[in-house]
Design a protein around this nucleic acid. Structure first.
Lengths: 209, 209
DNA sequence: CTGATACCCCCATGTTTATGGGATTGAGTG
DNA sequence: CACTCAATCCCATAAACATGGGGGTATCAG
């Protein structure tokens, strides 16, 4: 039995999700509030929900701040954001505040249900667009067309250097002779105006290549 | 029509995914390789897949390194990891290398298919366990204040290394003997479990120190 | 064809690093 | 006080690196 709660200021949405969950086998949704404040007031230490569905745009305390508070006091509660916002900042803030899932309000009821199941089983429900934004956080997309002066092979060599490999190991990885590696590295040094692999690694990791 | 490719060294798995996709309406899987190297060799600039399904544990160049290379040369290709590994490091490395999705090898074929559809529509397919790990990256649950194991002096030395200085120049900058620099660097290597200044520089610039 | 590029390989020489062993000093702690 | 620890220096050896040459091949634009 999954015990859920919902904090959402739109009565219609809140009611509809609550009703839906309550008529699903294995679900119970006994917590239903329209603000963080009222949730915190009515909370009983000995009777907590496993999962909380959270709106972000709430009257009074914001959903983000609310999540921080709730997580601080009850880390065992899993929080799922349920919001119309899909901008990276809101997503990022939510995850940092302790959300373990982020669903857009366009998510159909049955997916919300399976999302909650996912959550208690150690997964993380996320709308696909959200997942994409989260992932883009790692791999900065905003890379402009930086015309690297290096050739494709030379860039492969740089990757090897950054990984801390010796010339020999780079040669093995790229299946070329160590002499060829040397040759390319000489070219790289000339093109980048550097005089050692240390500088190449630094430049590379700073995105200057 | 979604044009996909797969790089996977297990013939059975590769073949089965390729065959499955090829008999799905709206899919074509014409690229099928068992290593990064053979993929790169056979690649035609004027005929690229939209999506690549990538194994991580490949013979020769690793999937992670391969993704870095492929993304560097063809940023428009979407990469989905397809791996047995679900440890945070592999996931994190993959995303940083440019993966836009991460599916475990337990994923059924039809979910792989819908994952690819998700991808070209701007989403990001992720197995639920993976999503959870990604999210935990943001919400530092058990994140300790990792106290740098290095002493103040050692950190100064690291700065010198990152700046691309030789031992001699570091010694001059810090007004100590080159022998002392050597000594400290030995300590640094021991403490960080690395075997060369390249790795120290990389770690440092990645904020791991 | 010619020149420009990228790629591949080999050699020789000197410098820098990596790694092991030492030794001494001063500050801080029990 | 003895003891630890960071910091300072010295020596020796092997490996890795930087830099200068020298060859080739293939492709592509003019």
């Amino acid at each position: 039995m999954i015990s859920a709660g919902i904090i959402e200021d739109d009565d219609q949405i809140r009611k509809s999700i609550q009703d839906y969950l309550n008529c699903q086998a294995g679900f119970r949704c006994d917590w239903s509030f329209n603000s963080i404040e009222s949730f915190l007031i009515h909370l009983r230490e000995d009777n907590l929900p496993q999962v909380l569905i959270m709106d972000l745009g709430l009257p009074g305390m914001s959903g983000i701040d609310g999540m921080k508070l709730i997580k601080q006091q009850h880390p065992q509660i899993d929080l799922v954001v349920f919001s119309v916002y899909n901008d990276p900042q809101k997503i990022f803030d939510s995850l940092c505040a302790g959300a373990t899932g982020y669903l857009l309000k366009t998510t159909p009821l049955d997916e919300i249900k399976s999302g909650l199941e996912l959550l208690v089983n150690g997964g993380s429900p996320m709308s696909p667009q959200i997942a994409r934004k989260v992932i883009e956080f790692f791999s900065p997309r905003g890379k402009r067309e930086a015309p690297s002066p290096l050739s494709a092979k030379e860039r492969e060599i740089v990757v090897g250097l950054v990984d801390g490999l010796s010339y020999k190991l780079i040669a093995d990885r790229l299946r070329i002779s160590i002499e060829t590696v040397r040759f390319h590295i000489k070219s790289i040094y000339r093109k980048l105006h550097v005089h050692g692999k240390a500088e190449v690694i630094a430049k590379s990791l700073r995105g200057e290549i």
